[in-house]
Design a protein around this nucleic acid. Structure first.
Length: 574
RNA sequence: CGGGGAAUAGCGCAGUCUGGUAGCGCGCAAGCUUUGGGAGCUUGAAGCCGUGGGUUCGAAUCCCACUUCCCCGACCA
């Protein structure tokens, strides 16, 4: 491709709304333009990158036994009513009517349609397993779209769904998809981690996220250097920590703590550490309010709590009712109205001894309390947010923390959809059984943004070569010098003949502008063809990612560059 | 939805407090000069000042309502 005919409008300044690097750089470099909140147009450079990502995905999924389909983006409400997601999905699901008044939605995901498709045609265990995927636009009317492509409303997603006749088969499929995902992100040239994840709203029993490592990532990941356990902090298991240091000791008593509502204030006022205070939280849920007990130095992990309660939703930060007093709640001497409330306790509560807790009236706390003073709690649960000081929940080793961007997610679904939607088959014995499903997503357009977050500098993007819009850029530095143009053309055609994806910057611009555009767009390998080098029989080679520069004799240039490209391709086409 | 901010030329901004009919940089067009890291000079085109209403002789500026966008929280690829 010649740059003079490429539609790649670059900008010196980014729109001020672009705050994250990927949004600013993809806009400045001419990959995307915003049309509305969370809705973007993709320009030719973006299409090239997206196509390369999609090609890798297709190759690896097909290798792993999945087949591509294309499902409608506009889907009938009836199917969504069968799975009850028409009611449960909420306003994030974009709904509308056709001219006849029938209800439809724009697909945010496609479990219903794929299940309908498979149940219609697959009747026997002999036809299983089936593993289908598509790459298509999705729409989720996000509460708050943000960070450009990272959390848009319309986005490109690969979504795949597998159907097996039993749990063992579904487990094998899950593993095959897990392995394929590792190869996909590896081949994209990204630094990433597969991590254990909460199963969230989609449900199911087993789940891994694939996180691209980047300081600007939204997700926090912990990883144990000792045993390799890696998980989203939302889920990360922490070991019970050692008992808190006992206070000086003394008689169990109520003590006035005027205006001291926070753990910090109370502990300072009473001369104890936060770890010697029992924190009581009032949490509202769809199944009614719950009191949560946790040691004062620990943070409640809302995701763990939600899944422990099997709740649809939970809310903290609500005014307590049942005669409870915000800032002075405690599990001992509960007001009569609150005595029947469900109480759950974090594991850390089991380490408390001689502790402080709220006295259930304004400006009063209790001190020198013991666990024997607490109402019967039953088993304690792991409800804590993993912190830097926590030992790994699996082996007790030390956790390291990373920031990550979730670009892929694999779920073991089981029969969550096949049961209500009656996606059944006949087994060997002629018995009708629900298929065992899995679902597997990859955020294709998000990968593009995540790659930029992970690979950029002040000048622009530093694409990993396998997903760069072009592998090599040739910059003809003097457009009006026949010798330079001829040398650039020779290189361009020579590289193209070798199957290299090359952009020739033949525009009638000053060299500085070509340098700036090349670094902004982020071409991984750049060849500078200029009068200065040609007089010495060389062209200049630049590796955008490493910053390496070297002069190549013209006679060797093509062979050397082809070798570099092939080394960086990570088996593309394999 | 709760909290905070913004909307003036394609992009970045000033002008708003203290009303008098719109300006700067970049970009764009033309000319001359320049030519290896976003050139210099000259000339030029380009703006229902987010929308609607109000106050006023007069509104980008003051008042009211609305819309859109961004940031922080709850949701997700």
């Amino acid at each position: 491709m010649r740059h003079s005919v490429l539609h790649a409008p670059t900008l010196k300044e980014a729109p001020k709304e672009a705050e994250v690097p990927s949004h600013a750089l993809l806009t400045r470099a001419g990959f995307i333009r915003k049309e509305a909140a969370g809705i973007y147009s993709f320009l030719p450079l973006a299409i090239r990158t997206l196509s390369k990502i999609e090609r890798i995905i297709r190759e690896e999924l097909e290798r792993a036994g999945a087949q591509e389909v294309l499902l409608p983006t506009v889907q009938p409400a009836e199917l969504w009513m069968e799975s009850e997601r028409w009611q449960k999905y909420g306003p994030e699901l974009l709904r509308f009517k056709d001219r006849k008044g029938n209800d439809f939605c724009y697909s945010p995901t496609a479990e219903e349609v794929i299940t309908s498709l498979v149940r219609r045609d697959v009747r026997s265990y002999r036809q299983l397993p089936v593993n289908l995927f598509q790459i298509a636009n999705k729409f989720r009317d996000e509460i708050r779209p943000r960070a450009g492509l990272m959390r848009g409303r319309e986005f490109i997603m690969k979504d795949g769904y597998s159907f097996d006749s039993d749990e063992a088969g579904a487990t094998r499929t899950y593993q095959a998809m897990f392995d394929a995902y590792n190869r996909i992100f590896e081949r994209c040239g990204l630094a990433f981690r597969p991590v254990e994840a909460d199963t969230g709203a989609i449900g199911g029993s087993r789940s891994h996220e694939f996180q691209v490592l980047a300081d600007t990532g939204e997700d926090s990941i912990v990883s144990c250097a000792a045993c390799g356990y890696t998980a989203n902090v939302e889920k990360a298991e922490v070991q019970r920590t050692s008992p808190a240091v006992a206070a000086a000791g003394g008689r169990f008593e109520a003590v006035a703590t005027p205006g001291k509502r926070s753990i910090e204030d109370v502990s300072r006022f009473l001369g104890v550490t936060p770890a010697q205070v029992l924190k009581t939280l009032y949490v509202d849920t769809d199944a009614g309010p719950v009191l949560v007990l946790i040691r004062g130095d620990r943070t409640l992990n809302e995701v763990k709590l939600k899944s422990a309660l099997k709740a649809q939703w939970i809310r903290l930060d609500v005014e307590p009712t049942h005669d409870l007093v915000a800032g002075f709640m405690g599990p001992i001497k509960l007001p009569a109205a609150a005595a029947k409330l469900r109480v759950v306790a974090d594991d850390s509560v089991g380490t408390l001894t001689d502790f402080v807790c709220g006295g259930n009236e304004a400006d009063v706390h209790l001190r020198h309390a013991e666990r024997s003073d607490l109402p019967a709690l039953g088993d304690t649960l792991d409800l804590s947010m993993a912190g830097a000081a926590d030992p790994c929940g699996r082996c007790g080793g030390a956790f390291a923390f990373f920031r990550g961007i979730e670009v892929g997610h694999v779920f073991f679904l089981g029969t969550k959809y096949s049961l209500p939607m009656q996606c059944n088959f006949l087994d060997k014995d002629g018995a009708e059984r629900p298929m065992v499903m899995g679902c597997y997503g990859i955020g294709v357009s998000r990968i593009m943004a995540a790659a930029v977050e992970q690979n950029h500098d002040a000048q622009g993007v530093k694409w990993p070569l396998p997903i760069a819009p072009f592998e090599v850029a040739i910059l003809g530095l003097q457009w009006d010098d026949e010798g330079v143009v001829a040398a650039a053309r020779e290189l361009y055609e020579g590289l193209r003949a070798e199957g290299v994806d090359v952009l020739w910057d033949d525009r009638e611009l000053r060299p500085g502008q070509k340098f700036a555009d090349a670094d902004l767009i982020g071409h991984p390998l750049q060849v500078l063809v200029g009068r200065r080098g040609l007089d010495q029989g060389v062209v200049e080679f630049k590796d955008r990612r490493s910053g390496e520069r070297l002069n190549l004799p013209r006679v060797d240039a093509i062979a050397t560059i082809v070798a570099r490209v092939q080394a960086a391709r990570k088996g593309l086409g394999g």
